[in-house]
């Protein structure tokens, strides 16, 4: 079997304005794929078209090798960006209903997932009694409790605290290991960098980057210095841009700058405890691409 998802030359406009313009990408079976881009880039529109909630104006889409029949829908799990659940239903009733709509209800698996996500003790509570983060975990469980082959997660990390973020992160990695095809749509680059095999970056409805994370990074070259230091860091010759974060900094080199010269200049100004030449982070690439566009 070939690709789980094939998107070819898809365009969609609302009120005469392009939201998505002539984009194409594939997601291979068993791949963890990142759909990334700033807010309003068209990520959710692409996902809605994949699920036949919206229809593209032109272009073709295929999921799991065919059009979107009921049977195919049963093999897909979806966590939408718009979070909402029936407030007056209990956790178990909610999961039972959403599971029944997928024709694959497994109480055992649902309970296991509740356990994994630390929600088992809340299973008989009403949704309205849960915190926002808890409700979000319930939605994630609803998206995967029918053991789908293809899982679409739209901004799965938004609104989660670090502990829950790690839980969700581990769960996605676990699903990936079990051979599930996963599409993660997000603007949180560090997550994508660690989890995704390949990415498609969209900006203002246009595809701007497409490929494996490593390949994209090497395309941008080893033009970045990761620095750990003490002191005040500014105005370094040969450095185009400095992204500070406390005692760490990401330094973007000007093209043609010599790293040894830069190191000398830095060493003369601050105490260096770590110096590493590296490819730019996906976050930096993302910002660069968006700013250039």
């Amino acid at each position: 079997m070939g690709n789980t998802v094939e998107v070819s030359n898809v365009s969609k406009s609302f009120n005469g304005q392009f939201v998505v313009r002539d984009i194409s990408f594939d997601i291979a079976k068993g791949e963890v794929f990142g759909l990334i881009g700033p807010n309003g880039a068209g990520k959710t529109t692409i996902i809605r078209m994949l699920l036949d909630i919206l229809r593209p104006d032109s272009g073709g889409l295929s999921i799991l090798g065919s059009g979107l029949t009921d049977d195919i829908k049963d093999r897909i799990g979806y966590l939408p960006e718009e979070r909402g659940l029936y407030q007056r239903l209990t956790v178990m009733d909610t999961l039972a209903y959403l599971g029944a709509l997928k024709n694959k209800q497994s109480k055992r698996r649902t309970l296991e997932l509740l356990e994994t996500m630390g929600m088992l003790s809340h299973k008989d509570k009403k949704i309205s009694e849960l915190s926002k983060g808890m409700a979000q975990k319930i939605q994630l469980i609803a998206a995967i409790s029918h053991d789908p082959e293809f899982i679409i997660l739209d901004e799965p990390f938004s609104g989660l605290d670090p502990v829950n973020m790690k839980l969700v992160n581990d769960l996605i990695l676990e699903l990936g290991k079990r051979g599930k095809t996963i599409l993660i749509s997000t603007h949180m680059m560090d997550q994508v960098e660690r989890m995704c095999d390949r990415i498609f970056m969209i900006h203002k409805g246009n595809g701007v980057l497409y490929g494996s994370v490593g390949e994209i990074k090497s395309r941008f070259g080893k033009n970045t210095i990761l620095l750990e230091f003490d002191g005040e860091l500014k105005d370094i010759k040969g450095v185009k841009k400095i992204n500070h974060s406390g005692n760490y900094a990401e330094l973007l080199l000007e093209s043609g700058a010599d790293t040894q010269d830069v190191l000398k200049t830095i060493a003369s100004k601050v105490r260096v405890s770590k110096f590493e030449l590296s490819a730019p982070s996906l976050n930096e690439i993302f910002i660069q691409v968006v700013e250039e566009a």
């Binding site: 809605r48 699920l51 036949d52 909630i53 009921d70 979806y78 909402g84 659940l85 959403l98 709509l101």
Partner: peptide, 13 residues
Amino acid sequence: ENRVMEILLSSVS
């Protein structure tokens, strides 16, 4: 209003 619609639509027409 409660935005469950999108989840439902990923399962049914």
